[in-house]
Amino acid sequence: MKHFLTVVVLGAAVVTLVSAASTDGAISFEYHRYEELRKALVSVWLQCPTITRIYTIGESFEGRELLVLEMSDNPGTHEPGEPEFKYIANMHGNEVVGRELLIYLAQYLCNQYQQGNETIIDLIHNTRMQDFNYLSSNSFEITLELSCDKFPNEETLKSYWEQNRNSLVNYIEQVHRGVKGFIRDLQGNPISNATVSVEGIDHDITTAKDGDYWRLLAPGNYKVAASAPGYLTVIKKVAVPYSPATRVDFELESLMERKEEEREELMDWWKMMSETLNF
């Protein structure tokens, strides 16, 4: 059986990793059992406390906590306009390469951040994790196969890391492509849960509480629509480059405002006709 690394890509930014690191900054290429994973998560947090957060999303069938490590310049806080990204590994307990690579990735990001790697600093400062309600409605899920060996020898783990390190980092960077922006009403108030649709693509997303959205798209020309209950839909033509994401904001007019405008226009017309015909 092959190893699987499940990748969930969001429209806003942090890297969430079930992962670990040692406090001395050295990557240890070895397998981690559950208790070792818990200790490793704490080690990452202790090494980089200003850019990490540990939390739980529940328990496994056997009652073990499902811990998550978040990495961001403001962990635990949604920052309007930032894209979000999530890696998930170890979907099956005996398919271990994906889990170990994310352990190494978390430590690598922490180490490189502390050492002043500008690429990693920029990535962490401009990418963050989203809450799970947003995740479930706005994610793109991709499964990557990393190995044909379910449980390879421990001495091969370093080579797996070296072969996949750059790809793991570069894949996170892809979240900064496509279109992004805010959806507001005519008074500038954010519209949450507004729908962003792309013509010809059957995958809509919704805005966060601040009206912000991110929509991953390959380079090309698109028609992007913004809609919300009680508002008129707005459609824009957008040319999307390879990188970075194109900013596309929307202002939606409420149906009540439109009806009021139409009523006023009708009254003005009636007044004009009355004066003209001497009613």
Rank of each mutant, 00 (worst) to 15 (best):
residue 248 V to F: 01
residue 279 F to E: 13
residue 80 P to W: 01
residue 71 M to K: 04
residue 80 P to D: 02
residue 116 G to K: 07
residue 232 L to A: 05
residue 275 E to D: 15
residue 176 H to A: 10
residue 202 D to A: 13
residue 100 E to N: 13
residue 90 N to I: 00
residue 169 V to H: 05
residue 146 L to S: 07
residue 212 D to M: 00
residue 180 K to H: 10
residue 203 H to K: 15
residue 169 V to D: 06
residue 101 L to D: 03
residue 57 I to H: 03
residue 199 E to S: 15
residue 202 D to R: 08
residue 245 A to R: 09
residue 148 C to Q: 10
residue 29 F to I: 04
residue 164 N to D: 03
residue 97 V to P: 11
residue 270 W to L: 14
residue 269 W to F: 09
residue 3 H to L: 05
residue 36 E to R: 11
residue 203 H to P: 07
residue 190 P to I: 00
residue 64 R to I: 00
residue 12 A to M: 07
residue 187 Q to L: 13
residue 214 W to V: 00
residue 41 L to A: 03
residue 150 K to W: 04
residue 146 L to T: 02
residue 238 V to A: 09
residue 99 R to E: 11
residue 46 L to H: 10
residue 208 A to H: 02
residue 213 Y to E: 02
residue 2 K to G: 01
residue 245 A to G: 07
residue 172 I to Q: 03
residue 89 A to R: 08
residue 144 L to R: 09
residue 41 L to D: 02
residue 169 V to I: 15
residue 158 K to T: 06
residue 31 Y to L: 12
residue 32 H to R: 09
residue 78 H to A: 04
residue 180 K to P: 05
residue 274 S to D: 06
residue 16 T to G: 15
residue 116 G to Y: 06
residue 47 Q to I: 00
residue 253 E to N: 02
residue 214 W to I: 00
residue 5 L to M: 10
residue 145 E to A: 03
residue 23 T to V: 14
residue 170 N to P: 07
residue 86 K to L: 14
residue 104 Y to L: 12
residue 197 S to K: 14
residue 85 F to L: 13
residue 210 D to H: 01
residue 41 L to H: 04
residue 188 G to M: 06
residue 116 G to A: 04
residue 67 L to T: 10
residue 6 T to D: 06
residue 129 M to A: 11
residue 178 G to M: 07
residue 90 N to E: 01
residue 213 Y to V: 00
residue 251 E to I: 12
residue 233 T to P: 08
residue 238 V to R: 04
residue 143 T to A: 01
residue 275 E to N: 14
residue 129 M to F: 04
residue 179 V to I: 15
residue 157 L to W: 04
residue 39 K to W: 00
residue 147 S to F: 05
residue 189 N to F: 04
residue 159 S to D: 12
residue 8 V to K: 13
residue 96 V to W: 06
residue 6 T to A: 02
residue 203 H to D: 13
residue 47 Q to E: 12
residue 33 R to K: 10
residue 103 I to T: 09
residue 86 K to M: 14
residue 77 T to N: 12
residue 139 S to Y: 10
residue 247 R to W: 01
residue 21 A to W: 13
residue 278 N to R: 14
residue 222 Y to G: 02
residue 175 V to A: 11
residue 166 N to R: 14
residue 63 G to D: 04
